[in-house]
Simulated scan of single mutants.
Amino acid sequence: MVRIQFQSIHIDAIAETSSVNKGTNRIIGRRHSVKVNQGLGEVAGEHNVILGGKHVVQDSDRFDMKHPTPKS
């Protein structure tokens, strides 16, 4: 058995499928799928004005979400 101890812990945010567990935990049969596309860009120079900007993220994945299989 592995034992991990922390002097203290700080959690900034819990999101999506995050969890905080204490004690003896057994998590069985839980699944989660999520896909997030993010874009990062830069506007440089002086006197920039952006009105109604268009943003494009190139997504080369073959699929976006895995379809859940029905439980029998």
Rank of each mutant, 00 (worst) to 15 (best):
V43G: 12
R26P: 02
E16F: 08
N25I: 04
I4N: 13
D59R: 13
T17R: 03
H10V: 13
V57L: 05
V2W: 00
K54S: 11
V2M: 04
K35W: 05
P68H: 02
R31S: 15
I50K: 10
S8V: 05
D61S: 04
Q5C: 13
G41K: 09
H32Y: 11
N25W: 03
R3V: 11
I27K: 12
R26L: 11
N25R: 03
N25D: 08
N37V: 01
G29C: 02
K66H: 04
I9A: 15
G29S: 13
A44Y: 13
I4S: 08
I27L: 04
Q7L: 00
A44M: 06
T69S: 07
H10F: 13
Q5D: 01
G39E: 00
N25A: 03
Q58K: 15
A13R: 10
P70Q: 06
Q5E: 14
Q5L: 01
H67E: 10
K22G: 04
R30W: 06
I11E: 12
K71A: 14
K71V: 05
G53C: 00
G39W: 11
E42V: 06
R3M: 13
N37C: 03
R30P: 06
I4R: 10
N25L: 14
G23D: 02
L40S: 12
N25F: 06
T17Q: 03
I50Q: 15
E42M: 03
S18E: 13
H67K: 11
I4H: 09
G41Q: 09
G53M: 01
G39I: 02
H47P: 03
